[in-house]
Design a protein around this nucleic acid. Structure first.
Lengths: 256, 256
DNA sequence: CCATCTTTGTGCACGCGTTCACAAAGACAT
DNA sequence: ATGTCTTTGTGAACGCGTGCACAAAGATGG
């Protein structure tokens, strides 16, 4: 999962398992699509297929929310949309600030999936004065100096960080100090936050690396021989730690 | 986890648990930073802190790769960088195509984290003829008609989909037919792929929804009374759930 | 060469999440 | 009403992942 919780050992919130919470948005999306097609009811089997999960898992997930289905029939689409929305807190609107108006920040600012789910962009923020005032997705970019004021005035509790890695921790600290208690971090850094603040991170390059691992494995299964050397013998060699230029050429280290 | 595996029940690849694989890029990033500061060795405790994980977990993760540490000393930074890179398959270079040159696609095209880890953008592709030939991050946008040719000529095995949801499945099918076996999907849809093809998805709005859930819970703990009604009784009551605002009124629907 | 001190590598136990499989519940027809 | 048929909701078993706690390994100093 590109995704990843940072702190806290997967607490079970109000009896709803973390894993279930993470799937609710998936169900919600599938249900919304059904709703738009005016489908009145759906069985766990059908909905599970649409959401890409096992039907038993889906039923168990829903059982944590309550008994919302009708045996022999299935689930009422509209009703379930409402229940899940309420459970996720999407029936209220959440002001959000996005800090860092590079390509990614701009992309998020224009992302339709936010507004339609109760998230309202309270402000776009960047430290570059060149950008101040410029319109992105119809909203003016505000300068980083205004960060604290914006957060407090709008009662912002969710912040999105799309700055370069170097600036992320400082921005995070300022957001938290101003009252933000949930952070979505796109910068490739580990953020340190006080207790009570949730951080979720999305790292684009990590996802690709995981794919590369599996891809390599697939390729390796066909050849299955070459230098898939035993890692055990490696230990003895232990090179003198020559370190090449930045961003490294491959070390000529070669176990065994 | 923003991330999410789509298919396959968490196979254990070559003895390395999925969860460990997902953390390797994290360690690699922390190690690269140490390497740039010319730190020769690092203990599991220090590295774990830098990567934001438990030190016992880190040691266990490394133990799946082999015995690369020295007791009483720690791990050789350069050596470990190389071993992890090799394990993840980052010592070879992976041609990647990005399909869908909207804001997000453009952001990814310009993302530095790719090139520095062995991913080479083979082509940027979009269906809009208006975009064809235009330069994004120094690369010319190619038309979707060329997709199959590009994939085959460059032996591309990894594809990134940043199209609108409606186009994603078709693009996916074409990529797979042309030879792609790993897909990173940013479109908010469930992709169906044949066996042997890996899909990872990143859904920006899902992450926010998970944060909203926890945020709501935090807010609810202080008031802890109002309509946090027991879901059991709810069934009978089944409120007429008025939900204001655009984007669909709330179902006055009521099963049973 | 021996003693001490640091840090790894891992056996073990525990808890969460997943899946199976089935009884209970309700719709629907007769 | 009664029986059949569909689909939910969940008890129970299993497997993976996590974290503790410690023995083994090696470095370092005398």
């Amino acid at each position: 999962m590109a995704t990843g919780r940072t702190h806290r050992p997967a607490t079970r919130s109000r009896g709803i398992p973390e894993a279930t919470v993470a799937r609710l948005p998936l169900y919600l999306r599938a249900l919304t699509a059904l709703s738009e097609r005016s489908v009145p009811t759906v069985s766990s089997e059908e909905l599970a297929a649409a959401a890409g999960v096992n039907s038993a898992k889906l039923r168990k997930d829903f059982s944590y929310l309550g008994s919302y289905g009708t045996r022999g029939v299935g689930y009422d689409v509209e009703y379930l949309v409402y229940q899940i929305s309420r459970e996720l807190g999407l029936t209220q609107d959440w002001p959000v600030v996005i800090v860092g108006m590079g390509n990614l920040g701009a992309a998020l600012a224009g992302y339709g999936g936010f507004a339609s789910r109760g998230f309202r962009i309270a402000a776009l923020i960047d430290a570059d004065v060149q950008l101040t005032g410029r319109l992105i997705a119809g909203l003016p970019v505000r300068h980083a100096d205004e960060l604290e004021g914006i957060v407090e005035d709008n009662q912002v509790s969710i912040g999105v960080i799309t700055t370069p890695a170097g600036a992320a921790q400082e921005v995070c600290d300022r957001l938290v100090a101003a009252g933000v208690t949930s952070i979505l971090n796109f910068a490739p850094t580990v953020l340190t936050v006080p207790d009570g603040v949730d951080v979720r991170k999305v790292d684009l390059s990590i996802e690709l690396q995981i794919l590369a691992f599996h891809e390599q494995r697939k390729a390796g299964e066909e050849l299955e021989s070459s230098l898939t050397a035993p890692p055990v013998a490696a230990k003895a060699v232990r090179d003198g730690g020559r370190r090449p230029g930045p961003d490294g050429d491959v070390p000529a280290v070669m176990p065994a």
